[in-house]
C-alpha cells in the first residue's frame, strides 16, 4: 500500500507528512465555516473569493514573493512564505469587499458582481503569472498538489486554523444570531455588516490556507460540502457542527489516501470523496422521508 510506504519510509515521509498535516488543518478550518456558508447561501461568493486567490497568486508572483526552492530529490516546488499568504489573503478579501461595493439592487445584482470579480481575478492571475518570474504552475494553483506543501506551509495552515477557530468561538453567539435572523440582529446589538465582514475574512483566510492542497477551483467545495452533508443528517446545532467537522476530516484524509494510491491530485480526490458522502446522506434522507410518508399513509 503506497499510503503506508509514503508516510513511514524516511525517503518519502518528510515530503508527504506536511501535506497530510496541512490537510487536517484545512479540514478544521473549513468545517467550522461550512455550516454558515451553506445556511447563508454564501457558496457562490466563496467561489468568487477562491478564484480571486488565483489573481492574488499572480500578484504575489509579480511582487517577487514566490521563490523556487529545490525540495528533496523528487521535485522542484515553490515555497510560500508569510508575505505571499498575506498578499493573497488581502487580495481575496479585497475581491469580497469589491463584490459588496459594486453589487446593488438594480443593475448589478450580487451574483453578477461575483461573476465579474471571479473572471476578472482569473484573467488578472493568468496575465500576471505569464509575465512574472517562474513560480507555481497553473495546474498546482488550480487543483492543488501534495508536493507543494512544506513544513512552513503546515505551520501557517495550523496557525490560521487555530486563529479562525478561536474567532469563530469568540463570535459564535453573534454569528449564529445573525445567520438565523439577520434583519432582527441590529435590534439585539449585532451588526450584520460586521458579521458579514468577519465571515468573508474567515472565508478568504480559509481559501488561501486550502489552495495549496485543494487548489483555487476546489477549495470552495471543501467550504460547502461538510456543512451540506451535516445539514442533511441533523437539524440539531451541536450534532450538525460535529458532523461537519467529522466529514471534513474524513473526506480530506480519505482523499489524500486516494491521491496516494491512484496518483490523483489531492483536490479532486477530496472533493470526490466528499461529494460521494453528500450523495449518500441525501439519499438516506430521501429514503427516510419516503418511509415516513408511507408510515403516515399506512397509519
Amino acid at each position: 500500500m503506497k499510503t503506508i510506504q509514503y508516510l513511514t519510509d524516511p525517503l518519502y515521509s518528510s515530503l508527504f507528512w506536511p501535506g497530510v498535516l496541512a490537510g487536517i488543518a484545512m479540514a478544521l478550518l473549513a468545517a467550522g465555516l461550512s455550516v454558515f456558508v451553506v445556511v447563508k447561501r454564501l457558496s457562490f461568493i466563496g467561489q468568487g473569493i477562491s478564484h480571486a486567490a488565483f489573481g492574488g497568486a499572480g500578484l504575489a508572483a509579480i511582487l517577487g514573493l514566490s521563490a523556487t526552492f529545490a525540495r528533496g530529490a523528487m521535485q522542484e516546488a515553490p515555497l510560500y512564505g508569510i508575505p505571499q499568504f498575506a498578499v493573497i489573503t488581502l487580495f481575496c478579501l479585497g475581491a469580497g469587499l469589491l463584490v459588496g461595493l459594486i453589487a446593488d439592487k438594480e443593475a448589478t445584482r450580487e451574483d453578477a458582481a461575483i461573476g465579474i470579480i471571479l473572471v476578472a481575478s482569473m484573467a488578472l492571475g493568468a496575465i500576471l503569472l505569464k509575465i512574472a518570474p517562474p513560480g507555481p504552475t497553473w495546474e498546482s494553483l488550480l487543483f492543488g498538489s501534495l508536493y507543494n506543501i512544506g513544513m512552513q506551509d503546515t505551520v501557517i495552515a495550523w496557525t490560521l486554523a487555530l486563529g479562525v477557530l478561536l474567532t469563530l468561538w469568540m463570535t459564535r453567539r453573534s454569528l449564529i444570531f445573525w445567520a438565523f435572523d439577520e434583519s432582527a440582529s441590529p435590534a439585539f446589538g449585532v451588526s450584520p455588516r460586521t458579521m458579514k465582514f468577519v465571515l468573508l475574512t474567515l472565508l478568504a483566510i480559509t481559501t488561501v490556507a486550502s489552495m495549496k492542497l485543494a487548489g483555487v477551483v476546489l477549495a470552495t467545495a471543501i467550504l460547502v460540502l461538510p456543512g451540506a452533508i451535516a445539514l442533511q443528517v441533523s437539524t440539531r446545532l451541536v450534532p450538525v457542527f460535529a458532523i461537519s467537522f467529522g466529514s471534513a476530516l474524513a473526506g480530506v484524509l480519505a482523499g489524500i489516501v486516494l491521491s496516494f494510491e491512484l496518483d490523483w491530485s489531492p483536490g479532486p480526490a477530496i472533493v470526490t470523496v466528499l461529494t460521494g458522502a453528500f450523495l449518500v446522506a441525501k439519499g438516506v434522507r430521501m429514503l427516510r422521508g419516503r418511509a415516513g410518508t408511507h408510515g403516515v399513509a399506512a397509519a
Binding site: 455550516v35 451553506v38 469568540m170 445567520a179 438565523f180 432582527a184 439585539f188 445539514l231 446545532l237 450538525v240
Partner: peptide
Amino acid sequence: DAELAFPLSGRQVVQLGAAIANKP
C-alpha cells in the same frame, strides 16, 4: 425573515436572545 434552515431549537433561539450580550 428568519433563516429556518439553521439548526436551532426554539429554546436555543430564546437562549441566544438572553445571552447575546454575554462575554464570549
